[in-house]
Structures are given as structure tokens and as C-alpha cells.
Computed example of a mutant assay.
Amino acid sequence: MAPKVFFLPDELTTSGYIGGTAHAHIAQAHPEYEFTLLVRNEERAKPIKDKYPNTKFVYGSLDDAAVVERAAAEADIVVHTADSSDNVPGATAIAKGLAAGHSAENPGYWIHVSGTSILTWYDNQHQRYGQGPLPEQKYHDMDDIQRLVTLPDGAHHRNVDKIVQAAISDAVKVAILCPPTIYGTGSGPVSTRSRQVPDMVAGTLDKGFAPIVSPGLTEWDNVHVQDLGELFVKLVEATQDPSLRDNPEIFGLNGYFFAENGSHRWSDVARWIAEEASKQGYLPEPMTKLVTQKEVELMEGESTPSWGMNSKGIGQRASKYLGWKPRGPSLKEEIPSLVAQEAKARGFTPKEKKG
């Protein structure tokens, strides 16, 4: 019997960047699965239904507790990417639904998406912006698992992580997937755009320079969105594998996965963007500018504060237990297409260089 998957995609449509890509990868790998998606209304469901005609829908928002609880209770697997890292009502409803609909003999599985901005807590707490990471700011998802699952309550996303972790029982099996900077073109029907790097590209095009939070030493990890999509497939498949589904290192308090395949300094990303924007004719020269954290937070885009803080998470759990092997191009290799895409979306046209 095919497993029933309840999908809560980001922005409450599977056209969301992470959710759209995850759904596309899982549906392609397992078209025999029964998918039910939470969307706001029939209008939002239409582009999804056009691409995935066998998909079922429930209508509502993350605040509609009864809707979410019922769907979670009926599902074998819940994949939550819809504002998953910050929405308390949605996480609470999923926890209640899974507990109500499952037992130790028939457990329900919850794949929950958090995010590595949870690791920026130290810089945020100490207002330490633009500086490089301290040794104690680096976390390993195998060696430092106890530190990870007991991060300070003030850490970004931590309040929802605690709800998810508290739901773990013999009847509710949980894996938390924690991606860092995600880049590359998504696979959803509508939204294929990430946030952090495209926001920096957009800011560079608008301001005429690429911003660097002084002194420009902050670091993050990164992952290609298509590699992230494959990790979702690996986790979903693990729920159906007798040799993996009861492993507490995959589904349990220790099941905390960093999805990373590289790292970057935000100052380097700013320089790559400035150089490429100049090369493509959108800037007269590859200009960068040192700014303060307050200045960068005033720029357009939700992700701008992250450029001035560190997030360092070393991921080996997915490789060890699931055989995940990222293959996507590097972040630097994606910069030319990102610049072209953002310029087109904003109506910028290349300018002829003089001389």
C-alpha cells in the first residue's frame, strides 16, 4: 500500500522554493505515493493540480488547527516546509495530529524544516556583526548533537524546534532538516527563487554596489537546491525502509541534519556579484561597499540581516546514515545566472561601456 504524504509547502503553495523543489523530487522518485497538500484555496491549487493531477488538497492555513491536525493524523508522513521554522500554530497542530492518528505499532513520520540561522544566536546576542566565526560557533551534526538539540531558547527557530522535539515518541518519529544558504533554480511550478543571494544581487543592482557588513569576515554554509531536493527523497524513503525507519539517529532527538555542501564568506559573494554585474553591463564597475549591520538591515529583502552574522554547521549525518551525495554546481558557478535572472525580473538592461 502506497504511503500517504501530507505536504505543507512553503508559502502554503507547493510553488514555494523549498517546498516546490522537495515535492517535485519526491513525486518524481515515487509517483505511486499519495500526496495531500495544504493550500489556501482552489486558485492556489490550480498550478499544482495542472502539473500533478493526482494530488489531493486540503484548504486552509497553518492557523486552521483542525484542518492540519486531521490531515496529519491521516498521513503516514508529514513534510513541513510552510513557514515551518517559525510558525508555532502549524507545528503544534502537526504534533497533535500525528500523536492522535498513530501508535507505536503504526508510527507517523515528520520531516520538519528548520534553518541554520538558528546558529546565528551568538552573534545576535552579543551584537557581533561582520566578524569571523569563533571556534565555539561551529557545530557538527554528529559530534555536537547534544549542543545542537539544546541551543539557547533565544536562538532563531528554537521555539519551534522545541515543539517538534517534544513530539518525539514511539508513535511520532521526527527528523529535522536544517539547510543553510540555498542557491540554484527551484523545481516548483511557480517560485524558483531563493532569498539570501538573490536579495544581495537585487540590492547590488538597486544601489549600484554590493554590500559587505564591515569588516567582512562572516561565513555561512551553502547547498544547491536540487541537492536539497534529493535529501528530502532520502529522508522520505528512509521512513519506508525497515533498516532505517526505527533508527534513532535518523528519526529521533538525534535526527538533526545539516544539509550543507560548501561554505562562503559573504564578502566573497558580494565581490562575485559585483564583478558579474559589471561584466554583464549592469554596473559601471565592480563596486563593493562596507556597511554597518543597521544599514544592511534597511535594504530590501527578509534575508539581509543574515549577511552580518555567522552560521557554521558541518553536516555528516545525511552522508553517513542516508548515503546523500551532493552533486550540484558551486555557489560561485551560479552567480552569473543569478545576476541575469534578477536583472531581468527587475527590468534592468545592460549599459554600453565607454572606452
Rank of each mutant, 00 (worst) to 15 (best):
Y52H: 12
P284N: 12
N247Y: 02
G108R: 03
T116R: 03
N41Q: 05
D268Y: 08
G315P: 03
E219K: 15
E136R: 13
E285P: 03
G328D: 07
H126R: 15
G97L: 05
V190D: 14
Q240F: 01
V197H: 00
A175F: 00
D63H: 10
Y139I: 14
G308S: 06
R195N: 04
R193A: 00
D10F: 01
V236D: 06
G308W: 01
P189V: 11
L38R: 09
G101V: 02
H30K: 13
E105V: 08
A24M: 02
T304Q: 14
K351R: 13
P211D: 09
I273D: 05
S191T: 11
R195H: 05
G216D: 08
P215M: 03
Y122H: 15
V68A: 15
A2Y: 08
D206K: 15
P286I: 07
E74W: 01
H112I: 06
A259G: 10
F348Y: 15
G262I: 01
P107R: 11
E295H: 09
G301W: 01
V113W: 01
L119C: 04
L38N: 09
Y17S: 02
P336G: 09
D144I: 11
P135L: 00
G108Q: 04
L8Q: 12
A104T: 14
R70H: 13
W324G: 11
E69A: 13
E333L: 06
I18W: 00
A166M: 08
L12E: 14
G60Y: 00
F209K: 04
T204G: 06
E105S: 15
F6M: 05
P180D: 02
L298H: 07
G315T: 02
Y17K: 05
V201K: 01
Y139M: 12
G97M: 02
A175C: 12
Y129T: 11
R317Q: 07
I163N: 08
F35S: 06
I77C: 11
G229Y: 02
T92A: 14
G132K: 04
V223Y: 02
Y129N: 14
P135I: 00
R70I: 04
A318N: 08
V233M: 09
V67N: 05
S311D: 00
I335G: 08
